[in-house]
Design a protein around this nucleic acid. Sequence first.
DNA 1: CGCGGCTTTGATGTTCATCAAGTAAAGTGG
DNA 2: CCACTTTACTTGATGAACATCAAAGCCGCG
Lengths: 231, 231
Amino acid sequence: MKIKKDIVSCKTCVYRTLLFGCLNDIEYNLVNNGRKEIEYKRGERIKSEGEEIDSFLYLRKGLVKIFKTGNQGKDHILSINKPGDFISLLHIFSNETYTYNIEALEKTLVCEVELSIINYLIESNGDFAKTVIKRMGRIADEIIDNRFRQSQKQIKGRVASILLFFAEQIYHSNTFSLPVTRREIGELISMTTENTIRTLSGFNNDGIIRMEGKKVELINVDMLRRISENG
Amino acid sequence: MKIKKDIVSCKTCVYRTLLFGCLNDIEYNLVNNGRKEIEYKRGERIKSEGEEIDSFLYLRKGLVKIFKTGNQGKDHILSINKPGDFISLLHIFSNETYTYNIEALEKTLVCEVELSIINYLIESNGDFAKTVIKRMGRIADEIIDNRFRQSQKQIKGRVASILLFFAEQIYHSNTFSLPVTRREIGELISMTTENTIRTLSGFNNDGIIRMEGKKVELINVDMLRRISENG
DNA sequence: CGCGGCTTTGATGTTCATCAAGTAAAGTGG
DNA sequence: CCACTTTACTTGATGAACATCAAAGCCGCG
């Protein structure tokens, strides 16, 4: 990791409106002065379970996975997050320490704002408080909904939905390079690596996707969508 | 359902401190005047998916289940809630309509506060906003953590953990009467009714619990805890 | 260049869903 | 209150979905 200097002002940040749109100039400066930009390489750990929560994080560039380590050492990925996401929002106000891990899946730029400043803004700016509450609710809803939908599918549906997730939510293209290993896809859908690979190979053989190493091209998106929705 | 008259003041409510502890007299009166107490019988629907969200709910007495209906008409229970719980807190600020159902498992008293009042308080009282955010975070954490832990267990561990949940969280006793059907236990642990029953019968035959109809007595709590944690 | 992690395929076994069938309990309408 | 219907509960048999174990090729990296 590398702490950046000469960082740009929050005022010109593209993600400003997502959360900080309702701040006045004085409040902006508070945030601006109380923040750091930190760069992480692929594979670097950003936060770990048990680590103290003393800042509010959001993703400026890159891609991260949020995951928990289970009993037998197996990881479960809760979500994959992209620029603009608030990767700590869920429980920084209710917990003293992180209950999950965050790791960079590629070169990633994280913006870290001191928690005390965010807390001050919530207390003093009602609009800001409401914005935070809304976003928190949406994040929680998404995780719960996702896991609910996934739990109703079997492996083909889960793999299909992950492929669509990368194409539609992350890369906005039917051709992309997987940012995760096969094992991580398994951790994302709660299946073993072997069966995840078997399913991907199946899609490949059936001509639904074309796959070589990390490179993936979705050929029959309609079919993928049907598989994702019906089982 | 039955709307109650002659309701007591919020000021004397045992659950006051959970959320409304930081309000002044004027704010109290706002909440007090903008609320209704509604009584539901066992099996009555309190809120349904798609219904408009226009109030903030919390449970005064009784027991409810929060659940979603899946593709093949199968319900999945997200949580069972007890008095003092805020049964709408997760997404009333981020959604226009409910995305889940709430149903009474026994005679239940729900306190309904107009959403506009809660919104006003968040904007005008920073302490209140922080309290709401903290509780929201904790509720989301709990649901996510629970589902994570359950997903790592197989059926015996899941059934054991539900029995411990009722004993420890709801009834504070090793002897209790199940407030749910066998099917609902299945919906709570994402297993079929048949296998849920088989597992309960197994515990009964092994002398870990004593069970007759809805009556349950936990005999070997240590064993249940081990089963819940290790499998 | 050799080691460890990733990927792949095959064979086998376990866990759980599904189907079936019957009993018990709980509502429902005359 | 009783006949009737529905829902809950239970056990057994079978099969499907997935985990696990094993083995081998591949690739990147120190």
